Simulated scan of single mutants.
Amino acid sequence: MSGRPREFEGEDVIEAAMDVFWSHGYEGSSTQELCERTGLGRGSLYNAFGNKQALYMAALRFYHERAIHTQNGILNGPGTARERLRRLLEWGIGEDLEADNRRSCMALFAAMERGRKDPAVSEITRAYAARLEGALCHVFALGQRAGEFTAERPALEQARAFMSSYYGLRVLGQSMADSAFLHDVLEGTMARL
Rank of each mutant, 00 (worst) to 15 (best):
R4I: 08
R4Q: 10
R6F: 06
E7T: 15
E9F: 00
E9A: 13
E11L: 09
V13H: 05
I14D: 01
I14Y: 01
E15A: 10
A16C: 13
A16S: 13
A17H: 02
M18E: 12
D19S: 11
W22F: 04
H24I: 01
E27S: 05
G28F: 02
G28R: 11
G28M: 08
S29L: 07
S30F: 12
T31M: 15
E33Q: 15
L34R: 10
E36A: 14
E36I: 02
R37V: 02
R37C: 05
R37D: 04
T38R: 08
G41L: 13
G41D: 11
G41R: 15
R42T: 14
G43M: 13
S44I: 14
L45H: 11
Y46D: 09
N47Q: 14
G50K: 10
G50S: 09
Q53E: 15
A54V: 11
A54C: 06
L55T: 04
Y56R: 07
Y56F: 15
Y56W: 14
M57P: 00
H64K: 11
H64Y: 08
R66L: 03
I68S: 11
T70W: 13
Q71G: 04
I74A: 02
L75A: 05
L75G: 04
L75C: 03
N76R: 15
N76M: 13
G77Q: 03
R82V: 01
R82N: 08
E83F: 08
R84Q: 10
L85T: 06
R87N: 11
E90V: 14
E90I: 13
G92C: 03
D96C: 13
D96M: 07
L97Q: 10
A99E: 11
D100E: 14
R102D: 05
R103Q: 06
S104I: 15
C105E: 07
M106H: 12
L108Q: 11
A110C: 03
A110Y: 01
A111S: 11
M112P: 06
E113A: 12
G115N: 05
G115F: 00
G115E: 06
G115A: 09
K117E: 14
P119Q: 10
V121L: 04
V121H: 01
T125S: 11
R126A: 09
A127S: 12
Y128E: 08
Y128I: 02
Y128W: 11
A129S: 14
R131F: 02
L132D: 05
E133L: 10
A135Q: 13
H138E: 13
F140H: 00
A141Q: 09
L142K: 07
G143D: 05
Q144K: 07
R145K: 15
A146Y: 05
G147Q: 07
F149G: 00
T150W: 03
A151E: 01
A151F: 01
R153W: 00
P154L: 04
A155E: 13
E157Q: 05
A159C: 09
F162H: 02
S164C: 09
Y166C: 02
Y167I: 00
L172N: 08
G173F: 00
G173K: 07
Q174H: 07
S175D: 04
S175R: 06
M176S: 14
M176G: 00
D178N: 15
S179V: 12
S179T: 12
S179Y: 08
L182S: 02
D184M: 11
L186K: 09
L186I: 15
G188M: 09
R192W: 07
